Amino acid sequence: MSTTPADLRYASTHEWARLEADGIITVGITDHAQQALGDIVYLELPQPNSQLSAGQIAGVVESVKAASDYHAPVSGKVTEVNEGLTDAPEGINSHPYQSWFYRLQPDNPAELEQLLDADAYNASCSA
């Protein structure tokens, strides 16, 4: 069964977002998403300093079963990417909420509040 941390916000497209103390937002994919994909073998990350709009495709996750786009949950400028995941993308399967993809400086931090909370995200996954 999926675990859904209550301290994160969620996009309906299965990305999670965490607001850090410095105002940066950390982004990854949910446990539900990695379970649906199966064994992840490749991750394409966005370019550092690139500008993303909420809902825009940020990259691709490939598994032994499928390739899937993932999206930016909020708009902002990419400040850092997790290069370690390109060498070991399987970490996403074992630790989806520690295996962040990228961090961004949000254009409008209020966009985070438009995302789903854990209960609403879980409800959307079981619908």
Rank of each mutant, 00 (worst) to 15 (best):
M1F: 08
T4V: 15
A6H: 14
A6S: 15
H14R: 09
H14I: 09
H14D: 14
W16E: 03
W16G: 04
R18V: 00
R18M: 10
T26Q: 06
G28I: 04
D31N: 05
D31W: 03
Q34C: 05
G38N: 11
I40F: 00
Y42C: 00
L43R: 01
P46W: 07
Q47G: 00
Q47V: 00
P48F: 10
N49M: 13
Q51G: 05
Q51W: 09
A54H: 07
Q56M: 08
I57E: 14
A58N: 08
A58C: 10
K65G: 07
K65H: 03
A66L: 14
A67P: 01
A67H: 02
A67N: 03
Y70E: 07
H71G: 08
H71F: 15
P73W: 01
T79G: 00
L85W: 09
T86M: 12
D87M: 08
A88C: 05
A88L: 08
P89W: 10
N93L: 03
H95W: 04
P96N: 06
Y97Q: 09
Y102K: 01
R103T: 02
D107I: 09
E111R: 10
Q114N: 15
Q114H: 15
L115T: 11
A120Q: 15
N122D: 14
N122R: 13
S124I: 05
S124Y: 06
C125K: 03
S126A: 15
A127Y: 12
